[in-house]
């Protein structure tokens, strides 16, 4: 796949910030297959190459069902690729990716633990004393704006509040890599903007490597340093790689009206549109788009 390899190159060389040049995440010619009924194999992703620099925010965008999340799960170590390699800071990944935090699309908090315990658990299982873990969890809850919600159970929180707790739960462990699977997908439009701003604010403190999967192009451009475009599945491939040279810090609700943003949006959408139509079956809704 020449495109996939071409897409791989700019990321590796363009990784901003210091470091020894080894990317935080490097997926090389990764193919992922699932067994489906009748003993057949469904090829979700084909020979995808993605690399995320140590301090880089990379967004993957593609039509629904293209295998973006699958690719993310391979980087998390939750899924084993059928072929290709996954390297984390230069080392081949085996088992769960211990250096990564994962923000899920669905609710992933433990419903039987309070918000505070949910945030503290990552430290507790790593051996931190319970009182210290809870103390640090308290300050993380404050950082995501939920200082007085520590004793609430997840079902007593709104969707946006649960996402904040989940964000604190991931970030408190100080992972070198943050993987996000359409984390703000289930939220309403205003909450998404607020969560995006919060994410950028927290991220800019220490700039961890981020791999952010979304189907929302505006969100991808507003947040990321680089936007990678995937084709429609099955056998989805990487078909584009766009550097986003918008200055930081960004205000993601303001940035949308800037001409540079709109130019990028036009370019990427031009490529994405065809894939989106393919995903919905060409000719069916193609006429109206």
């Amino acid at each position: 796949m020449p495109q996939a390899e071409a897409a791989n190159e700019p990321g590796a060389t363009r990784a901003p910030g210091p470091g020894d040049g080894r990317p935080a995440v490097r997926l090389d010619r990764v193919t992922i297959e699932f067994g489906i009924s009748g003993g057949q194999l469904f090829r979700a992703v084909e020979e995808a190459g993605v690399s995320v620099g140590a301090h880089e925010f990379v967004a993957i965008i593609g039509p629904t069902g293209c295998g973006k999340s699958t690719l993310l799960n391979a980087a998390a170590g939750l899924l084993l690729p059928a072929s290709g390699s996954v390297e984390i800071f230069g080392r081949p990944l085996s088992g769960i990716n211990r250096q990564a935090g994962y923000l899920f699309q669905q609710d992933a908090l433990m419903p039987w633990k309070t918000a505070l315990d949910n945030v503290a658990i990552g430290l507790e299982v790593a051996g931190t004393a319970r009182s210290e873990a809870r103390e640090r969890a308290r300050s993380w809850l404050a950082r995501v704006g939920l200082a007085s919600f520590g004793e609430r159970y997840p079902h007593m929180l709104s969707g946006g509040q649960r996402k904040r707790v989940a964000l604190a739960q991931v970030l408190i462990r100080d992972p070198g890599i943050i993987l996000m699977d359409e984390p703000f997908g289930p939220l309403d439009a205003q909450t998404r903007l607020i969560m995006g701003d919060l994410l950028l604010k927290l991220w800019s403190d220490d700039r961890k490597a981020v791999l952010f999967v979304t189907h929302d192009l505006e969100e991808a451009i507003a947040l990321a340093d680089r936007v990678i475009v995937m084709s429609a599945g099955p056998s989805a491939r990487i078909i584009g790689d766009f550097p986003i040279a918008l200055p930081r810090p960004r205000d993601i609700s303001e940035i949308r009206v800037e001409p540079a943003f709109q130019a990028l949006h036009r370019d990427i959408w031009h490529m994405l549109k065809g894939e989106v139509l393919k995903a919905y079956g060409t000719g069916k809704i193609g006429g109206e788009a």
Binding site: Y102, F104, A108, M110, G122, V125, R173
Partner: peptide, 15 residues
């Protein structure tokens, strides 16, 4: 999802 999340948070089988 809760299970995957717990694994990603670094839990061992016993945890």
């Amino acid at each position: 999802t809760v299970l995957s999340n717990a694994r990603m948070l670094g839990m061992s089988e016993r945890q």
